[in-house]
Design a binder for these strands. Structure first.
Lengths: 219, 219
DNA sequence: AATTAAATTTAGACAAACCTAAAAAAAATA
DNA sequence: TATTTTTTTTAGGTTTGTCTAAATTTAATT
């Protein structure tokens, strides 16, 4: 595997994040990276010669297969470090991103694969974003607390933080378990309770319960 | 605390390592960093304006108090990462240096202090070199296996890797404990046994025993 | 469709960190 | 001490990644 500069890596990563569908524009990328449009044009020419992006003047750019592979490597590094910082070093949720921005450019593959193993092959970073595996495969879903599932979106229960018998009894009664599909129908700001659809039925759950249920959903 | 480039940090660190006593020369530093002498001159001028080195043309250079402080910060980062890689990620002894060369340039103080705490405030890296603490204080001694104590040097026992009762019995008999001063008098290559001086007396210990005793000594 | 506005690219400059080749200073030696 | 050798510095060039200002292309509006 070739080696890329921090700046090249940051450009590739930014394109990956912006490129939801269709192509990314010069101004968008300049805004994202806090540089000037002229600098973006220069860099795109370079990344084109390195076959990391498809680029034609005035037509925007998209990652090549190679470019996407690199983006996933960088995102893997970033999210594994975020997990490490939060889980092992007890950084708070909001602090991990900035430090991971630096750590993600240390490029030893062996380091990252061993870190992954040490952390127990986590699937989601502290923000709920999926972590690509060593082969660059990534889940399309994001993991969030049920309280943050966008209303109308289908979520799949994947984790419950409180494993007490009281919690399990309640979950059993509501017919909620690992893999159950849920969807938020209505939220009440007064007490954070919500009406959700579970197995074709509507039930109400408390904010306390919702805060302990985590779901995956596609963005 | 200001921020320095990777290249500046590497120069500062190299000067620290070469500057045993007296000043460091242009050629020495160029050899150490695998650059050309002309490049060293350029960098020394820059580091002088930043008040990190004392430098006068043709007279070599030494770190200022400020420069030494920076060097110790970089060495602290390097050795803590080495410890992490060996202890937690199970990298081998010889592999840790190269990866730590990259990690040492990630400059978050909070990261390093939390890493230090997570690792249990280790005092020596996997090579036996002392790790500076958060205030930049560093022990002058190096920690090595008794088999590697230079003959004639005084060593102080600081760690015994095998804590079995058999080992403790033997150590008690030989009057060797934590803090005991030892000195190698003669080594026998045939079976790695050695004659050592302990409390004014000469005794013989086996290679097996020596391999489990660790000592600190000043270089 | 013509004109104006916005986005993008080109052209030329700059700083950082390196380089080579030549000049100057210091050290070694005859 | 005079001369040669070695070390160090200066002068000028290169690459990377950024910038500004001007030119060009594309998109929007009248």
């Amino acid at each position: 595997m070739l080696n890329y500069s921090t700046s090249e890596e940051n450009h590739i990563k930014a394109i990956y994040h912006l490129q939801k569908d269709g192509s990314v524009t010069t101004n968008e990328l300049a805004a994202e990276l806090k540089t000037r449009p002229a600098s973006i044009t220069d860099m795109m020419k370079k990344l084109r010669t390195k076959k990391l992006v498809h680029y034609e003047a005035y037509k925007g750019f998209r990652l090549t297969a190679e470019g996407r592979k690199l983006a996933l490597i960088i995102i893997r590094r970033h999210r594994l470090w975020e997990f490490f910082l939060a889980e092992k070093l007890k950084f708070s949720w909001e602090e991990v991103h900035e430090v991971a921005e630096d750590l993600e450019h240390v490029s030893s593959k062996k380091l990252i694969d061993k870190l992954d193993e040490y952390l127990g092959f986590p699937r989601f970073d502290p923000h709920g974003d999926p972590i690509p595996d060593a082969q660059g495969r990534i889940e399309t879903s994001k993991q969030v607390c049920l309280t943050e599932l966008p209303p109308g979106k289908q979520g799949i229960v994947c984790y419950v933080s409180d494993q007490s018998s009281g919690m399990l009894e309640l979950l059993g009664h509501k017919k909620i378990g690992m893999g159950t599909r849920v969807e938020i129908r209505k939220r009440f700001s007064y007490d954070q309770s919500m009406e959700i659809k579970v197995k074709q039925q509507i039930t109400t759950i408390s904010g306390d319960l919702a805060r302990n249920i985590f779901v995956k959903y596609d963005e």
